[in-house]
Design a binder for these strands. Structure first.
Length: 289
DNA sequence: AAAATTGACAACCGCAACCTG
DNA sequence: TCAGGTTGCGGTTGTCAATTT
């Protein structure tokens, strides 16, 4: 299993030339890559972020040899590669918190994300968007249903319309009740127990999806843990390297450094680099380039 | 079994705020 | 103080996998 198993980019990378994200936009400087990240790029980025820290993204993008903008590097790090990230679906508790915080802060996603450790603003934003879309669809369906009910001489209850297998998907049915109850919750500011049930119902179609979710969570936590373990191992190898240099350690990570070739990697692999401070390093880099 | 729908998520863009020389 | 560069944020889009019809 790959350490980036949750990433769809492997496939994406293969079809990147035909993707909508290909290098067509004028906004990205010529020669710069766009679109899904490859595992090699991820590993390279992680390595260089650990080397230089989470700052000076443009500089980092340049010296790493990644054909990416600093902005793109930062985004990838913040939203996907950061070690503190919590993967998997938003839990009911988190959902409740998001509701509260959104009522308080509105669409200030980064502010909301600060109260949810391990979650990114992007993640919360995506979640919220999906949720509001669902609500919108539900309210439209409800409006349509009540309109047809009032215009029809046949009395049909809203409940029976929503419950009917032929009136739409099960998701919509669940989402409808969720939307109604959650907006009521927001207004009343309570109803946690009921809300729990509604949230569970709305977020998935229960058992099968739950199983899938668990599977996903297990898989993702495993892979990221494994990934950071490998990084830690690489660290250990790096400190060993300070004494013996590359190849002397016999450690898998040392024998096979995780960083692909880059214009500066040969320079970086000189162990003296690991001991110099930032300023000195920047000078050296500028001289070297 | 195939097509349609939905949800989740990664990634881009533009703009504003902040930083630095 | 100011201009240019960098970073952070919110909005939006595109794609894939899962689920439903």
């Amino acid at each position: 299993m790959s350490m980036f198993s949750r990433n769809k980019q492997k496939k994406d990378g293969e079809r990147s030339s035909s993707s909508g994200n290909q290098e067509t936009a004028a906004a990205v400087p010529p020669g710069m890559r766009k679109g899904p990240w490859t595992e090699e790029e991820d590993a390279q980025l992680v390595w260089f972020v650990r080397l230089f820290g989470e700052r000076r993204w443009d500089f980092l993008a340049k010296v790493s040899g990644l054909r990416r903008t600093g902005k793109s590097c930062r985004l990838r790090w913040v939203n996907y590669l950061h070690p503190g990230l919590r993967r998997g679906r938003i839990t009911p508790d988190e959902e409740r918190l998001i509701l509260e915080l959104h009522a308080q802060y509105g669409s200030r996603w980064s502010r909301i994300a600060r109260s949810l450790p391990g979650r990114t603003d992007n993640e919360i934003k995506n979640y919220w968007r999906t949720r509001t879309r669902k609500q919108k669809a539900a309210s439209q369906a409800k409006a349509a249903a009540s309109a047809s009910a009032s215009s029809s001489s046949t009395v049909t209850t809203t409940a029976s319309c929503y419950g009917s297998p032929s009136s739409g998907s099960g998701r919509l049915t669940a989402a409808s009740s969720s939307a109604v109850n959650e907006s009521a919750l927001r207004e009343s500011g309570g109803g946690d127990d009921e809300d729990d049930a509604e949230l569970d119902e709305a977020s998935t179609t229960a058992a099968s999806q739950h199983r899938h979710q668990q599977q996903q969570e297990e898989e993702s936590s495993y892979t990221m843990d494994q990934f950071w373990n490998e990084i830690a191992a690489a660290d250990a190898a790096a400190s060993y390297m300070m004494v013996d240099g590359w190849g002397g350690a016999g450690h898998p990570a040392a024998a096979e450094p995780p960083v692909p070739s880059s214009p500066v990697w040969e320079y970086c692999s000189d162990y003296s680099l690991w001991r110099i401070d930032d300023e000195e390093y920047y000078k050296k880099m500028l001289d070297a380039s």
